[in-house]
């Protein structure tokens, strides 16, 4: 019997591959939402495994807020080229010209325009009926309630009280025209699983995840990166801080954590003793109670 034992990572891998294949063979126009972060890297890696030796049967789509870190853009282009995938970038050009940013609009509106509306626009434009996302249930409490195959109506809205039951790994993939599915193959992975898998499979990730000395604004205990025109308060000036990013988003809303973990094993070791959750540095999760749930209801991932 011991020969037939499957480790946690291999079990999760098998489940994710099954999900990815199921989507590809049961919907018309799937797309993989690629957000450049570590979860996206893992998702793309799993998709490659799922269809090996055939190429990826769907494109990658980056819904670009234009407010990502420079290193993320560099990594994106290099990574996509190296795996030979097709990348489509959906920039919010019409709003980008008017210099939308969270300092002027507040994070709620900024996210709504840049992420939710842009995503819905991109889905419509590409006539995609299914989009993969790298979200995990351990990230946030409303995500813990979401199905692997999350049904969205024609406006991309999530109705948490009326979700399709999901049993055994038998997924209901049926949608009418205009409706869509969001699929989360990494639902059952934890942050630790992701890093252990990256280590095991040698998956490339953005260098910002690794600790080094960076120019940071230290504000109320938070570390704010100087990657763009961040408005400074009186007396604030960048200082060198040994830190890393645990999660990557837009530079105005993503903080770093103090850390010396410069390698994957060091990150894994750090995670095993860490006392704060992954998304504590993501400002948008803390806008109001149930803010993630609200955003998802409106069509956000």
């Amino acid at each position: 019997m011991e020969n037939y034992r499957l480790s946690q990572l291999r079990l999760l891998e098998a489940e994710s591959i099954d999900i990815i294949r199921e989507v590809a063979s049961s919907v018309e126009r799937p797309v993989l939402l690629y957000s450049v972060g570590k979860d996206s890297s893992v998702l793309v890696h799993l998709a490659q495994k799922a269809f090996h030796p055939a190429p990826l049967p769907f494109p990658l789509l980056h819904v670009d807020t234009t407010l990502k870190f420079k290193e993320m853009y560099e990594f994106r282009d290099r990574f996509v080229r190296s795996i030979g995938a097709e990348l489509r970038v959906h920039g919010s050009s019409e709003v980008a010209g008017t210099r939308i940013n969270p300092w002027a609009l507040g994070t709620v509106k900024c996210c709504s325009i840049f992420k939710t509306q842009a995503l819905l626009g991109a889905m419509k434009e590409g006539k995609y009926d299914a989009a993969f996302g790298g979200a995990r249930r351990d990230e946030e409490k409303s995500r813990a309630k979401e199905r692997v195959f999350s049904f969205r109506d024609e406006f991309g809205q999530w109705d948490p009280q009326n979700q399709r039951p999901e049993l055994w790994g038998l997924y209901n993939t049926l949608v009418n025209k205009g409706e869509s599915l969001r699929i989360f193959p990494l639902s059952n992975w934890t942050e630790l699983d992701i890093w252990q898998y990256i280590h095991l499979e040698k998956i490339p990730v953005v260098p910002m995840y690794f600790a080094k000395e960076r120019d940071m604004i230290v504000r109320e205990g938070r570390l704010i990166p100087m990657d763009g025109p961040i408005p400074l308060k009186d007396g604030e000036r960048p200082e060198k801080v040994m830190c890393r990013f645990r999660t990557l988003g837009c530079y105005p809303c993503t903080g770093a954590v103090r850390s010396t973990a410069a390698t994957i094993p060091a990150i894994i070791e750090e995670l095993m003793s860490v006392r704060d959750s992954e998304r504590i540095t993501r400002l948008i999760d803390h806008d109001q109670d149930a803010s993630m749930e609200q955003k998802k209801r409106e069509g956000y991932f």
Partner: peptide
Amino acid sequence: VSFSREAD
């Protein structure tokens, strides 16, 4: 790194 990776 190996901790919990081989666990089920």
